[in-house]
Structures are given as C-alpha cells and as structure tokens.
C-alpha cells in the first residue's frame, strides 16, 4: 500500500520533470532559416563547400601552375586541366602554362580532395550555394578568368 502511494507520487514527479524539459525546448529560440526571405542576408559557414573557385588577385593573376594534380586526384573526373606550352621570358625554355581549368559542377561530390592536394593553394571553396540552371552544360565552369596568368612569386617559394 505504501509502495503504491509512493509509486504514484514518483510517477507524478517524473512526468512533471519530463514536462519541464519539453517546456524548455518550446521556449528555446528556433534556429530554422527561412530561406527565400533571407536571401542575400544569409551568411554561410566559413568552411562550407559550395562551389570550387580559383582566387585571382587584382592584376588578374592566379596561382595555378597547371600541374594537373587536382585532375588526377578527382575521383569522378570533374576537373579538366587544359594546358599549353609557352616559352619562358627569362630562360627561353618551353614551360607549361594553364590554358583552361574546367570544372563540372554536375558531377562534383564536394569531397575536397582537389583542394587538399593542390600544392599551390590555387583552388578554394566558396560558400555560394545557389547553383540552379536549366541546362546541364551550364554547370561546366571555367575557373580561370580570360587573359589571366600565373602569379609571379616574390621572394623564396
């Protein structure tokens, strides 16, 4: 009999505890983003992998030496590095120069093996996440800009 009454009060106590916790959850501010309304205001996370980019400086120069390591590392052939030979001005020897760096967003899995492998840190992720287009071939992007060239390194490499 005593255990019966004790059980009832214990049960009520436990239930009240559960209700207290669910009430805490209810008054907690919600973190859900309302997407189309906050378009443009929304800051994505710093490490978010949205789109592969090749950063260029003010003189329209990039760091890519067209070594092709990213192309080799890519597990599903997303990256295509097309290079050409050009005579170097200082030495006069033939040197490989980046012609086009093609990136197919449609087959990219955002594994980041290319950016990890890149010895020059020439490619990086940008947090842009709105990629919708109407045809598939618009997803193939050229990462280096028109007329850009290799950044000349100052000091020791």
């Amino acid at each position: 009999m005593i255990r019966y009454i004790k059980n009832i009060f214990l049960g009520i106590y436990c239930l009240l505890q559960g209700m207290y916790i669910s009430m805490l959850n209810m008054i907690r501010p919600k973190v859900t983003e309302k997407y189309p309304e906050n378009r443009g205001r929304k800051e994505m996370m710093e490490r978010f992998r949205g789109l592969l980019t090749m950063p260029h400086n003010e003189q329209n120069e990039h760091k890519c030496t067209a070594c092709g390591i990213c192309m080799i590392n890519c597990p599903n052939g997303t990256i295509q590095v097309i290079s050409r030979k050009e005579p170097d001005e200082a030495t006069g020897k033939e040197k490989r120069v980046l012609d086009r760096h093609l990136y197919d967003l449609g087959s990219c899995t955002f594994c980041a093996l290319c950016t990890i492998a890149c010895p020059q840190d020439a490619i990086a992720w940008s947090p842009v996440f709105e990629h919708t287009v109407f045809t598939r071939n618009k997803l193939v992007k050229q990462l280096n800009r028109e007329g850009s060239k290799l950044e000349v390194k100052t000091g020791k490499s």
């Binding site: 959850n25 907690r28 919600k30 859900t32």
Partner: peptide, 13 residues
C-alpha cells in the same frame, strides 16, 4: 504550431 515549437521547429508559416 505548438507541436512544432515543442520540436524546435517553426511550423506552418
């Protein structure tokens, strides 16, 4: 709406 709040959602909006 209330159920959404309890589950840390916003609900129909």
């Amino acid at each position: 709406r209330v159920c959404a709040w309890f589950q840390c959602r916003i609900g129909p909006n």
